[in-house]
Design a protein around this nucleic acid. Structure first.
Length: 774
DNA sequence: CCAGTTCCGGTGACCTCT
DNA sequence: CAGAGGTCACCGGAACTG
């Protein structure tokens, strides 16, 4: 059925549906530009402007209102992340088409990348040094695949990976084919990864094979820089725990400085990096360290990779020999031999090699060709401008120490997430259990319900937002760092100076490793105690929480009984339950008051305030109920007046349908006593729950996400300030899981509200739960 | 104070892309 | 083909300048 021809907003000629309504092009553009914008329009007239073709420009407020009224959906507008992904996709497709148009034997379907990569293979004698390379372009057979089946140039380079999906056996494929399978179609890279890396062992074999070929390794890296979601996927395949993978992923973007330095090393000596990664792959858990540093700043990384391919790198064609005879030199020497002869025949202990190479690379031991950019003593800081000019000989201190060298065996370096992890872990789009399944997302990602790219975009967004926040702190932090550096005589790696800050802790070295915030820029030194801004944020919550102690209405106070027993076998809808339900209106009123005292909440537009409260008030109430639960009496201790507390027996919930009572008790019992008794924790958790960007009908989701993230951050910092490192991390992880639990329990609670007679409950509750009078 | 110029944000038509 | 975003010319208001 063709849509009506007039714009439902202004009456102008319409071509079809735009954002879920029939509108003209002009209203479509107007809505696209303004529906998600944070600017607040004002109506110059009487808030009731008639919108016509002529008047539509006169009042933006009424025009936007009408757009929403006639059903235009801002959800249909792409987020910045979505737009970015789409732009990249379009660019890739354009590149592909250009290549197809140019035709010729060198052309393939992988865009510009292979073109330049091919040029490198042709022009650089370095490639020959990697004699063991499986690179099919340089030494493999282009006419047959690894299974011996004839493929021809078309099938090996230009056919879509999906066409040959059924016949892939990753262990029999060449590096070129493996990488091609992943990068040829970014849309299906995730599926390709699933296909090629069905088990952890297979994943490691595949990655080993890929990094044996310099060209293919870099090609894959280039793809991963563009599609960090795929990097996350690969890491999750290599590692056992999706949480670890997530944390590693968050680390990718945590430290632009370190990331740039790693990239600069690639520029100066790709061979060393390939060798390094080969060694890392022998101990996958260490791979996180290098991966962590690898892709922080995609733009810079790509630029530098392009420099390699354009032949402008100034690296010596052969690896420089180490200049002094330390242990690292020997390691690197043997590594080179292995690389040139048989990469699989490493006679040294892999763990030792990895460890030494990590130290060599990350701490700037002046050996091998890496010394070309890392010749100085540790502790000499290079400004960013030097990093961006990687061929300079200016010494660089990486400010980094591999956690893998000091971690306890049972402790992967991932439990200390600083921020996006909580959001992701509780994101409606993220399924932790499903995340690491081999069958993950082939179909799901197609329909967008649980796509890796959605995780990626969410992560990117959160990291970006928090990183912006970090930036504002960076200047003073750098100053502190400098002071510490000078105090240490200029020889200590800067963050080792934290020993002073964290002094006295058992196992200082290890503790320091953990205290280095995974997701914070490495140049920032985190104090254990809350800084002024953090304290203010917490203080604001505490002040706001005073509203929770307001006295209750007299008519509801009857429920605040002390010893009144109920009969759990009473099957009828109890008046007591009704009273309890209505009492929650009091709690909700208090919570609303509290919310209004939070500046971030106050600053929001009214629509968002309403949406957050409607969606979050019961979850906040549940969170709060955890704290006020009196285990001995089986009751909630509720502030009755400023001075007195009253008890509400929790077994009133037995009157409700379903297992609300049991679920509630279960929830409380799984809450560690020392956490639930800490009002600061509960308040921050309440704020996290309140500022949930997942609520329906939100207009400014990104802004809310930022607020929520800031409370996640505050929670982590608060825990760090009151518990020692490991305990703080553990508490953080456990607490963010509780946020998922609250969501679950909330569904039970909401059912209770939905099962009562609307006419008998408080108007506030009717409004919140959209209860219609019978 | 005024006219001319420059800058900038908003708009709408048209185009490209999936 | 539908429905997204991108692009660009145009317009008008604000700021600046002589």
């Amino acid at each position: 059925m063709s849509p009506p021809k007039n714009c439902a907003v202004c009456g102008d000629k319409a071509l079809g549906y735009n954002f879920n309504a029939v509108t003209c092009e002009s209203c479509k553009a107007f809505f696209r530009r303004n529906a998600l914008a944070k600017k607040q329009f004002t109506c110059p007239f009487n808030q009731n402007c008639e919108i016509t073709v002529v008047t539509r420009r006169f009042c933006q407020k009424c025009r936007l209102k009408k757009c929403l009224d006639i059903g235009m959906k801002s959800e249909n507008i792409m987020s910045e992340e979505d737009k970015l992904i789409k732009r990249r996709k379009i660019e890739n497709n354009r590149a592909k088409r250009r290549m197809m148009e140019h035709g010729g034997s060198d052309a393939d379907a992988d865009g510009d990348y292979n073109k330049v990569a091919g040029a490198v293979a042709d022009s650089s004698s370095n490639v020959d040094m990697y004699g063991g390379s499986q690179d099919s372009q340089s030494c493999g057979s282009p006419d047959s695949d690894a299974n011996g089946r004839p493929t021809g140039p078309a099938s090996s380079t230009t056919s879509r990976p999906s066409d040959r999906r059924a016949e892939t056996n990753p262990l029999l494929m060449t590096a070129d084919q493996l990488v091609d399978e992943i990068v040829a179609d970014p849309d299906r890279a995730c599926q390709a990864i699933n296909r090629l890396m069905r088990t952890q062992k297979e994943s490691i074999s595949v990655m080993e094979k890929i990094i044996e070929s310099q060209k293919d390794a870099l090609k894959l890296v280039s793809h991963l820089i563009d599609y960090p979601g795929d990097a996350l996927k690969i890491i999750s395949k290599i590692m056992n725990s999706p949480f670890n993978a997530l944390t590693v992923f968050t680390k990718f973007m945590s430290s632009p400085t370190d990331g740039l330095e790693i990239i600069s090393k690639i520029v100066d000596s790709p061979k060393d990096v390939v060798e390094f990664m080969q060694n890392l792959m022998k101990s996958p858990e260490n791979a996180i360290d290098i991966m962590n540093k690898f892709m922080n700043t995609p733009a810079e990384a790509l630029k530098m990779l392009n420099r390699i391919f354009n032949g402008t790198n100034t690296t010596t064609e052969t690896a420089q020999k180490p200049v002094n005879g330390n242990a690292d030199k020997d390691v690197l020497d043997s590594g080179e031999q292995d690389l040139g002869q048989n990469p699989q025949c490493d006679k040294q202990s892999p763990a030792m090699r990895v460890d030494t190479v990590i130290q060599t690379m990350l701490h700037g031991s002046p050996s091998g060709s890496m010394s070309s950019i890392n010749t100085g003593e540790a502790g000499v800081t290079s400004p960013l401008s030097n990093i961006a000019s990687p061929t300079s000989n200016i010494p660089i201190d990486l400010h980094y120490q591999s956690p893998s060298t000091t971690l306890m065996p049972d402790e992967l370096p991932s439990t200390s997430s600083s921020h996006p992890l909580p959001y992701i872990a509780n994101s409606p789009e993220f399924d932790v259990k499903g995340f690491n399944q081999p069958s993950f997302s082939d179909e799901l990602s197609m329909d967008g319900s649980v796509s890796i790219n959605s995780i990626e975009s969410v992560l990117s967004e959160v990291i970006r937002l928090e990183y912006q926040a970090f930036n504002s702190l960076q200047a003073p932090a750098s100053r502190i760092k400098d002071e510490l550096y000078h105090a240490a005589g200029g020889i200590l790696p800067s963050y080792m100076s934290q020993e002073q800050a964290y002094g006295g802790c058992k196992g200082t070295q290890q503790y320091l490793q953990h205290q280095q915030p995974i997701c914070a820029p490495s140049s920032i030194i985190m104090e254990r105690d809350l800084n002024e801004a953090e304290q203010m944020k917490l203080r604001e919550l505490r002040l706001a929480s005073e509203a929770l102690y307001d006295p209750v209405d007299e008519d509801l106070s009857a429920l605040m009984i002390n010893d009144e027993r109920i009969k759990p076998d009473d099957a009828r809808q109890s008046p007591k339950l009704l009273q309890l339900i209505n009492l929650t209106a009091v709690a909700i009123k208090r919570l609303i008051k509290m919310a209004k005292k939070i500046s971030a909440f106050r600053d929001m537009c009214q629509e968002d305030q309403v949406a957050l409260l409607k969606g979050g008030c019961t979850e906040m109430m549940i969170m709060r109920s955890v704290m006020i639960y009196d285990n001995d009496r089986g009751a909630w201790k509720v502030p009755h007046t400023k001075e007195n507390m009253a008890n509400i027996r929790t077994d009133l919930l037995k009157f409700a349908k379903g297992n609300v009572y049991e679920e509630h008790l279960k929830f409380i019992s799984t809450f560690d006593e020392k956490w639930r008794m800490d009002e600061n924790i509960i308040l921050i958790m309440c704020a996290i729950v309140l500022f949930s960007p997942a609520r329906a009908r939100l207009i400014h989701k990104d802004a809310i996400r930022l607020d929520q993230n800031s409370y996640y951050y505050l929670l982590r910092r608060y825990l760090e300030s009151v518990y020692p490192g490991c305990e703080a991390k553990n508490a953080f992880i456990r607490l963010i899981q509780k946020i998922s639990d609250v969501e679950r329990l909330n569904k039970f609670i909401i059912n209770v509200y939905l099962n009562v007679n609307p006419s008998q409950v408080e108007p506030l509750l009717r409004e919140i739960f959209d209860l219609k009078n019978h």
